[in-house]
Design a protein around this nucleic acid. Sequence first.
DNA 1: GAATGCTTGTTAAATTCTTGACAAGCCCCC
DNA 2: GGGGGCTTGTCAAGAATTTAACAAGCATTC
Lengths: 209, 209
Amino acid sequence: MAKNSDISASVIKRLPRYYSYLEDLIEENVERISSKDLAQRMKTTASQIRQDLNCFGGFGQQGYGYNIKALHEEIGSILGVDKEYKTIMIGAGNLGKAITSQISFEKKGCRLTAIFDNDPKIIGQTVAGIEVSDIKNLESYCKVNTPSIAVLCLPKENAFGVAKKLIELGVKSFWNFSHFDLNLHFDNIVVENVHLGDSLLTLTYKISS
Amino acid sequence: MAKNSDISASVIKRLPRYYSYLEDLIEENVERISSKDLAQRMKTTASQIRQDLNCFGGFGQQGYGYNIKALHEEIGSILGVDKEYKTIMIGAGNLGKAITSQISFEKKGCRLTAIFDNDPKIIGQTVAGIEVSDIKNLESYCKVNTPSIAVLCLPKENAFGVAKKLIELGVKSFWNFSHFDLNLHFDNIVVENVHLGDSLLTLTYKISS
DNA sequence: GAATGCTTGTTAAATTCTTGACAAGCCCCC
DNA sequence: GGGGGCTTGTCAAGAATTTAACAAGCATTC
C-alpha cells in the first residue's frame, strides 16, 4: 500500500495501544478526546500522541480534539484490520489452543483457515471451529490456498524446518512463538517473534534491581 | 540488589536475548565468543553488545572475547534467575495452561506454588503438577504464603478486581496477560504487561505497508 | 620472550526519539 | 456573528540511544 516505510518502530509499537484505548473509549460512549486527556489516560505525553498521529496525517481538529470513532477507524486501517489475510497455524498444543481462544483474528485483519499438527492425538480435534489437519497435508494445502500468514506454535526443533518449507511454499509472514529468532535466518519475509520468556525475565530483573 | 537503576529500558529488553543466544552457544559446546561474532549471529552491532554489557561490568578480555559460560551466568544473575520468587497464577483456562507448559518458571527465578480459578469445571484439575484451587481461597492463601509474583490470565473484567485485592494482600509484582495496562492504575508495583494482540497488529501493519 | 594480531572498554560523534513551545485555527458561548 | 478559550500541527530544543573510532592490553605464534 506504499505507506511511508520510514515510520519508526517506536511509533508502530504504540499504534496498537492507541487503538486499544480508543476501543475502550467507544465502549464508554465517549465521542471525542483531546491529546491531553488521552495522554493522561495512557500515562504518556500529549506531544507524543500528536507527533505519532501526524506521521499518518492530521486526524484532529483545533479546539475540538479527535473524534474517537473516526480516529479508531483510521488507526485500524493503518494497522490493516480491514484486511483478510489468510492465516494458518502450525501446532495445536496448549499454546496454539490458547492463542486461538485469546486472539480474535478477524478483528485484526486475519482469517484463520487451517490448523496443522503432527501429533495423532491432536489431529482431528476441533480447535476454534477448525478440524486440526495432519502436518503431512501442509504442502498440498498451501499450494491450493496460498495462505499469507503462518502462526508458529511448535517446538524450536521442528519450527525451523517447517518455516523453511513454508517459505518455499510462498508464505511471507510469520507470527513466531517458537524460541528462536526467525527473521535472522531468512530474508524478504516479515516476522513478529514473541518471546514470552523474555518478558518474565524483564519482570524478575525489575524486581531484583 | 541495589543495582544501578539507571539502566535504560532498551538495554534491559536486550539482556534476555543475549541470555538466550548464550544458552544456544553452550549447547553447541562453544567456549568463547567475540562481540563481533555474537553481533553477527544476532544481527546487531558489536558496539551495542559491548556497550550493553559494560553497564554491568567488564566481563570480557582483550584479545580473547567473552567466556560464554561465565557471561551466561553473569547475565542470569543480573536478570535474577537464581532467585526463587514465589509465584501464583490466577486463571487456568487455555492461556494459563499454555503458559505453564511453555514457560520454565524455575529457570527464570520463579517457583509456581499455586493456581486459582473461579470455574467449577477447572477447580480441582491438575495443571503443571498443581491442583487448581478455588479463587475463594486466594486471600487466606496469600496471608499464609505471601507470594511475590502473580501471573494474571483471566478476563479483563475480573482482572482489575483481582489485581486490586492482590495488591492489598501485599503482592507487588504482576505478569499481566489481561487486556489492559495494569501499571497505569496502581503505583508502587512492578508490572510486565503482555499484549499478544498488539504483536499481531504490528505484523499486519508491516505486511500492509 | 618478543612481535603480531585480536578484541575489549571507553570516549566521542552521529543519529534517533521525546518533549516543550507556539502560531494558526476551530469551537462554543454570549 | 464576534470574541475568548481550547487544541491541533509543527518546529525547534533537549535527551537518549546507537554507532563509530581508538588506545590499552591480552593471547597466540614463532
